[in-house]
């Protein structure tokens, strides 16, 4: 009997370890992603999310983090523009796959907007006008689907502030909106487990521009 219990426990453990559930797998991957610092770490994380997405073909979240990891990588490189665009090509592929799974998710459009901004940063002289337009349009779609999406609100503010700085204008006029968003962040950012929740630090960064 004793043996049987032990055996059952062993089997149960085995079953648990053999193939973690989707949530467990994504949770583990996110923990590792949270610690990623270098391009190599981020590549490993992007690959991990990709592996999960290839099993869970109806879930957009692993693709979201895969795309986000590539966008982060493109921001990390300074010089190699071909490589930066290659990262963004990979990110765009995941965004397209996500939209095929779910075209009503505000977060996906917000990430698409960030991707366009990343394209802009690579060559502002030549891409500025078009990518600014596309980025703005994607934010419009994100806010259309969920006006309270704090990340879409942040990206809109970030684009506006960036544009004001480019045209040598004061950013002061945006400060009330930045402060409101920061103050309301936690309330707006009540998202289900494992959902995108980034952005508060970025808003804090904008806040630092206001004195």
């Amino acid at each position: 009997m004793k043996h049987l219990i032990t055996l059952t426990i062993v089997f149960a453990l085995f079953a648990a370890q053999a193939q973690p559930s989707f949530k467990q797998a994504l949770g583990q991957a996110l923990t590792q992603y949270g610690q990623a610092k270098t391009i190599e770490d981020l590549t490993a994380s992007a690959n991990q999310f990709k592996r999960i997405s290839q099993v869970e073909t109806k879930e957009w979240l692993p693709l979201y983090y895969n795309a986000q990891a590539y966008i982060r990588m493109s921001f990390m490189l300074n010089d190699n523009n071909e490589q930066r665009d290659a990262y963004l090509d990979a990110a765009q592929k995941s965004v397209d796959e996500m939209l095929a799974i779910n075209n009503k998710e505000s977060e996906i459009y917000a990430l698409q907007s960030l991707l366009y901004t990343a394209r802009l940063v690579i060559d502002p002289m030549n891409r500025g006008q078009q990518m600014m337009m596309k980025s703005g349009q994607a934010i419009g779609q994100a806010l259309g689907l969920n006006p309270n999406n704090p990340r879409a609100q942040y990206l809109l503010l970030s684009n506006e502030v960036g544009q004001a700085q480019f045209f040598g204008k004061e950013v002061e006029e945006f400060c009330p909106r930045i402060n409101t968003l920061y103050a309301n962040w936690d309330e707006l950012n009540q998202v289900p487990e494992l959902y995108p929740s980034w952005g508060k630090d970025e808003v804090a960064g904008l806040k630092n521009l206001c004195k």
Binding site: F14, Q17, A18, Q19, P20, A25, E40, T43, A44, N47, Q48, K50, R51, I52, Q54, V55
Partner: peptide
């Protein structure tokens, strides 16, 4: 480096390191 190695249909896998090497456990 950076290749995505996996067992198809599972979450198990790893990325190759700078030396093109990968290693993972699959129960």
């Amino acid at each position: 480096p950076g290749c995505n190695v996996s067992l198809e249909g599972t979450y198990f896998g790893a990325s190759t390191n700078v030396d093109g090497e990968f290693e993972f456990n699959a129960p």
